[in-house]
Design a binder for these strands. Structure first.
Length: 270
DNA sequence: CTTTAAACCTGGTCGC
DNA sequence: TGCGACCAGGTTTAAA
């Protein structure tokens, strides 16, 4: 389910349990994820202490003594902290702490990943070509306009490109374009600096408020039965084809761009 | 180099 | 109730 807010919410949820604690062992029930889970993972990681729980883009990074455990939730992955109990369907990996608590990885579609990376993060290929974090100062209007010169494509595809800016997935791309009043089909080069400014602010807004709302449900995070603290974000256009626009009442349109659905208001977004 | 399509998977929904 | 088609929040890799 994860876009950046869900990943950050997950990070905040698991950090208190993981930071400073020691890994007892790792149990892998299904190693066929996006990439195969390393066979010797438990042997390599057992006994190591987790010094920090970090995030870069949609990757979660568990900093250990000798490297990082690199976790991606793909399209359907989730992590939660539980007291040990019998694994359910699609509970692929347990990271068992010395305390007895378990970090359990669940992922029906298995597009996620669970990798061990020894040494410096800079040498990790998955992180090498990523753009700035959306909530960072480096992601601003002039940067976005500068990036627009490099390629010819729609603004929707531009902001979903992880090399341009990380963490903007299909839902929040549509939402941010709605909030800034920009038609998703517009070519990047046609955006004025004012429009770039609006779009950047909208992206920061929609992501940070989603993270904030995630925080309000974090108390549910350790619930054995429940989903991790995912939240019902108020969505203006995503998934609302043919429903009336909140602002003007026009029917929301659904189109396909780069094989992904885009939703927008044909009246408010120009 | 850019751009597009296919691939990795399971599960839910919709129409017949 | 069953079956096929299509859809799903991501990213990499191959092909054009």
């Amino acid at each position: 389910m994860p876009e950046l807010p869900e990943v950050e919410t997950t990070r905040r949820g698991i950090e208190p349990y993981l930071a400073g604690s020691q890994i007892a062992k790792i149990v892998v029930r299904q190693r066929q994820l996006r990439w195969p889970v390393p066979a010797n993972l438990s042997k390599v990681l057992s006994g190591q202490r987790i010094s920090a729980v970090k995030r870069r883009a949609k990757y979660l990074l568990l900093q250990l003594e000798q490297g990082h455990l690199v976790i991606h939730l793909g399209m359907s992955g989730s992590l939660r902290i539980i007291e040990y109990q019998r694994p359910q369907k699609h509970d692929h990996i347990d990271l068992i702490l010395s305390s007895g608590k378990v970090l359990r990885y669940h992922d029906p579609r298995r597009f996620g990943s669970f990798l061990w990376h020894q040494g410096e993060l800079e040498s990790l290929s998955q992180l090498a070509d990523l753009g700035p974090e959306p909530l960072d100062k480096a992601f601003n209007a002039s940067y976005l306009q500068e990036q627009a010169k490099r390629r010819q494509r729609s603004i929707k595809q531009q902001i979903m490109d992880q090399q341009v800016v990380v963490g903007v997935g299909n839902i929040y791309a549509s939402e941010a374009l709605y909030l800034s009043g920009i038609d998703p089909r517009r070519s990047v080069q046609t955006l004025s600096s004012k429009e770039c400014q609006h779009l950047v602010l909208a992206i920061k807004d929609v992501l940070s408020s989603a993270i904030e709302q995630g925080g309000t449900t974090l108390r549910d995070f350790t619930n054995a039965d429940g989903k991790p603290g995912y939240f019902a974000q108020q969505l203006h256009v995503y998934g609302r084809a043919d429903e009336p626009c909140d602002q003007c009442g026009s029917a929301i349109s659904r189109i396909v761009q780069g094989k992904r659905a885009s939703y927008y208001c044909p009246t408010c977004q120009t």
